[in-house]
Amino acid sequence: MHHSRKNKKKRNPIVIISILKIRDLESFSTNLGERFWVKVTFHLFDGRKLEAEGKVGDSLLDVVVNNDLDIDGYGACEGTVTCSTCHVVLKQKDFDRLPEEAGDEERDMLDLAYGLTDTSRLGCQVILTKDLDGLEVKVPESVNDARS
């Protein structure tokens, strides 16, 4: 999908290389041409639990879009790091093992998000690796009356 093009450009080249390596290893260990699928669970603020699968290399936003997950207003800017509607909260251990830390631009957008936490990320910038299979994230409610 066209929305992922831009964030791929923003990604650190070293990380892209590491993702490629993971992919190479997979094509060794699995059938030729088959890509590794990663399971992700989204826990919504209203108690709903959405489970979906994404390919290694997809972002969490890709997973939401490709699976047509029903999350209101998610990904308004289509993965270009110019809004914070794809905000997710990770568990500390998952947050720590993401291959790439949030850059300035991502943090700038997170600063505008509702319910910002120390383990918050933009879903469009969380890239799935084989390692993240079974990942669970919270999607905070995008509603808050305190504007500043």
């Binding site: 209101d72 207003g73 308004a76 809004c83 914070s84 509607t85 505008l112 998000a113 509702y114 995008s142 509603v143 808050n144 504007r147």
Partner: peptide
């Protein structure tokens, strides 16, 4: 709401 906030804020207000 008065003219404050970025599109995100307008979005969440509209949903509410």
């Amino acid at each position: 709401t008065g003219p404050v906030g970025v599109i995100l804020h307008t979005m969440s207000n509209a949903f509410q």
